[in-house]
């Protein structure tokens, strides 16, 4: 059932979570918005469309993955020989993530939880966070969710999807957690539903890019030794901005350290763009060449996770396009790869 939340209703709903100190929402920083714990509901710009008009980017700079897979976390501490679990995982509510990030959350859940041995930290974090997504009515020129199987009004991976219409939001529960959240709100009118559908169609119409993912996969299957990688990567400086801000990139490093006498095992994000990432203990590094590292990123998004989980791991959020200090655009890389494969008759 679709319900309608007037702006004041949504504000009231969020205010409850603010009071409990567990609401995270996009908060404007320096030229972009980032996830911050909100201390007053007035800090929350309910309308993401309004925020865009005020010059904010279409989406938060950091992806919502930080709520299940934080930048760094202590896995456990040691007491003598014993490992002691630390850090109660808090109950959080996240408002304002985009459908692309929701889709990414579904991917991460699948990767960390539904794929062989589960990662208990990620599972617990996902269980304890409520994701209230807001549909995109005005995608940016760097967005391409529809080209990789998503959509600006998609609800995958979210608990609740809100779709902005005149005077408020159309609410759609995706999980039982979401249903609980939306109980008591009036049913949306057919007119409101039609308005949301129209906004969805408008948003989709601005997302023109199409990628033939099957053909791309085939091109990559045979493209490991292609000279194209060298050509595509002269500009790349091999920083980790694209991978760290990618909502589906999930690589991490684990290390032990002692801080003020306390021993702990932590994990931090790691990036395939770093030389150290593939450095063997012997000193040998199979991916010393920057082109090999860039290739790994593209392969991972459009081939490796397809082989492993049956889906591409690019959700088209466009963050890597927006933040790359070298101006690299993964859409251009994809187009070049497809072009080269076509020329070679692959």
């Amino acid at each position: 059932m679709k319900v309608f939340l007037k702006n004041e209703d949504l504000k009231k709903l969020l205010a409850r979570f603010v009071q409990e100190g567990r609401l995270f929402a996009p908060v404007r920083r320096c030229g972009y918005s980032g996830w911050d714990r909100v201390s007053s509901v007035d800090e929350v710009v309910l309308s993401r469309e309004q925020a865009i008009l005020q010059g904010e980017e279409v989406n938060t700079r950091e992806p919502a993955k930080i709520f299940v897979f934080p930048r760094s976390e202590t896995l456990f501490e040691f007491e003598g020989e014993e490992a002691v679990e630390t850090g109660e995982i808090p109950e959080l509510v996240v408002f304002g993530l985009r459908p692309c990030d929701g889709r990414a959350m579904a991917f991460l859940e699948r990767f960390f939880v539904g794929n062989g041995p589960e990662d208990p930290r990620v599972r617990q974090r996902r269980e304890k966070v409520t994701l209230i997504g807001v549909a995109c009515n005005s995608p940016a020129d760097s967005c391409f969710c529809t080209a990789v199987g998503g959509g600006p009004h998609e609800n995958k991976g979210l608990d609740v999807l809100l779709r902005e219409v005149a005077g408020g939001f159309l609410g759609e529960a995706v999980t039982s957690k979401g249903e609980e959240l939306l109980t008591g709100f009036p049913e949306a009118t057919a007119q409101q539903d039609a308005e949301a559908e129209k906004l969805k169609a408008n948003a989709e119409a601005t997302l023109a890019l199409k990628i033939d993912l099957n053909r791309l996969k085939a091109a990559l299957d045979n493209g490991f030794a292609s000279p194209i990688w060298e050509r595509l990567t002269l500009e790349c400086v091999n920083c980790g901005a694209c991978t760290f801000l990618c909502p589906t990139c999930h690589c991490f490093d684990v290390f032990d350290e002692t801080v003020r006498g306390r021993k702990r095992r932590s994990r931090i994000w790691d990036s395939c763009q770093f030389t150290l990432y593939s450095q063997h203990a012997s000193g040998h590094n199979p991916r010393l060449n920057p082109a090999a590292r860039y290739r790994n990123r593209v392969m991972d998004k459009f081939k490796y996770t397809v082989d492993m989980l049956g889906e591409v791991s690019c959700v088209g959020c466009g963050r890597c396009v927006r933040v790359c200090p070298a101006g690299i655009d993964i859409r251009v890389a994809v187009a070049e790869i497809l072009k080269e494969a076509a020329q070679d008759g692959r």
Partner: peptide, 28 residues
């Protein structure tokens, strides 16, 4: 706010050490 992506280091012409101090692992 730093996410340790090292974009600052990677774009700097004068940060050219073969092994950066942050990447040293033995010892860290």
């Amino acid at each position: 706010r730093c996410i340790r992506c090292y974009a600052c280091r990677q774009v700097c012409p004068n940060c050219y050490c073969p092994v950066c101090f942050v990447d040293a692992s033995m010892p860290a």
